[in-house]
């Protein structure tokens, strides 16, 4: 490409004038935030369902189904979604990308939330009911506060998975809609612009910032939930 001659802001300037690229960045962030939000909600409900499953068999089956999505390669997931969306007649674009991102993030959230639920002493729920709480009170006043570190972790994991996903998005994205990873891929194949380098540098900084924020959140949460209850 280019020989390194010194530091320059030229490519950053060019990047900020490239509205198409900025829209793509915006798309990426919107998809990431929305998919993280929805997958956190569904993942949490899923984890609660697995936790509350009465039979051990049901529990294991649900957990295995959950893990199928984690172990299967992205390419397979992407191809499957493509086939599904084509059959179902869903127009490829923003919604198809969002749906598939939600789908592959849910198992991740489940895996982050479930250990927290398992860690919770069942007598906490008994205690809440004993003190007069109905099921809704138990959920909102006891269970969710207790597992909130897991929910946060799940949200951030889903966010990063969605941000840097390439293969699934590549399959299900359609005309006129693109995310950053797909765009960078096509730009890199053409191999002309240093826009990408500038963008990558910015992305790196943003990611670093997110990691730092995440670190402080978990630090605070760990302190807050430093296990007030002794295990049997």
């Amino acid at each position: 490409m280019f020989d390194f001659k010194g530091f320059s802001m030229q490519w950053y300037r060019e990047l900020f004038h490239d509205t198409r690229m900025l829209i793509i960045v915006l798309n990426t962030i919107i998809v990431a935030l929305l998919s993280a939000l929805f997958s956190t909600i569904f993942g949490m409900l899923g984890a609660l369902a697995i936790y509350n499953a009465k039979k051990r068999q049901t529990k294991n089956m649900l957990l295995s189904l959950n893990n199928v999505l984690i172990v299967s390669p992205d390419v397979i997931i992407g191809a499957s979604f493509l086939i599904l969306f084509t059959i179902a007649g869903v127009k490829l674009g923003f919604y198809s990308v969002l749906l598939s991102h939600i789908a592959f993030s849910i198992p991740i959230v489940v895996l982050m939330v479930l250990p927290k639920l398992m860690e919770m002493s069942p007598s906490l729920i008994d205690a809440a009911r004993d003190l007069g709480a109905n099921s809704w009170d138990v959920l909102t006043k006891v269970i969710i506060p207790f597992i909130s570190p897991g929910i946060f972790a799940g949200f951030f994991m889903a966010l990063t998975y969605s941000l840097d996903d390439f293969s699934v998005t590549f399959f299900v994205t359609g005309n006129g809609f693109s995310t950053l990873s797909v765009e960078i891929y096509s730009l890199a194949r053409r191999g002309i612009s240093l826009n990408i380098n500038a963008l990558s540098a910015l992305l790196f900084l943003v990611t670093l910032l997110l990691v730092v924020i995440y670190h402080f959140i978990t630090l605070r949460n760990n302190k807050a939930s430093g296990l007030g209850v002794q295990k049997r």
Binding site: S123, L124, A127, D130, S148, R232
Partner: peptide, 28 residues
């Protein structure tokens, strides 16, 4: 259980770790 005039002290105490002492006692 939530309709009974009975309260329990659990073996592992089952105090809510996200609440302080006042809020734990005030829960009911």
């Amino acid at each position: 259980a939530n309709k009974r005039q009975v309260n329990t002290v659990f073996q592992d105490y089952a105090l809510f770790p996200h609440l302080n002492v006042f809020e734990n006692v005030a829960f009911g």
